[in-house]
Amino acid sequence: MELRQASDTTVDGVPIHGGTEVVPLLRAGLLRAETLVDIRGVVSRGVADGRIGAGVPLAEIECDPQVPEVLREACRLAASPQLRNMGSLGGNLLQATRCWYWRLNWPCRLHDGDECFAREGEHREHAIFANDFCASAHPSDVAAALLALDATLTTSRRELPLAGLYRLPTDDDRRTTTLDPGELILDVRYDKPDASVYLKAMERKRWAFPLVGVAAVRRGATTRVALAGVAPIPWLLDGFESAAPLPRNAYKVDVAKALVKRATAAVAG
């Protein structure tokens, strides 16, 4: 394995920034790389009004008063202090699921296998929406916040709405993002909300991935709500009719409903 410094945003190899996801995955054998490309020199670390460089660590975002509450709180409640010092905004959006079957390298559908072990097995932390093919839950608090903010991403190749970064895995394409190999997220833009909030249910007070994370953003009379931890990708809420909980995670529907009610009330004008 070799480690190269990126000189521009054309990357040939596995990009690495904070390394909080790439290094454990490499060491666990879930990711293989001949070449690691350190992109810290080419991804912006600036925070300006309505624009955040993809290289900014979460620890800076959580205490930056320019940043909307929903995103600050999502960063504040994400991971652990050390991980927030290391992990970048862009990397956070691209983190893989915490599904234990996936992390333990079971031959599941996200690993190109033909079974979702969680559906029949232990799925108390898993998806309640869009879980028929793969019941993994997307763990990014930050992605839910940005989805609620209706943020736009600039990558090394294009601009796209945050929602366009993610796709549900299908039989013929198991990826959960639309990023091409070597494509880098460079920055994130959003319009300032009138009010916003992030609420998170987890199994301990800190340092846990969301059982349910609820991001609510109000602009004028419109409130947009996005959830973390409830679907294989960050989930833009369009009611609970489409929820299809599994036997052991139906409680997540109750938790999500309660938090959505609170979040919506909190941002109401």
Binding site: L3, V23, Q82
Partner: peptide
């Protein structure tokens, strides 16, 4: 945990070369 430029980081998942 060690400090890298004063910030606490996890040395067990920090690449020495980085």
């Amino acid at each position: 945990t060690v400090l890298v430029d004063g910030a606490p980081v996890l040395s067990c998942i920090t690449l020495a070369h980085a």
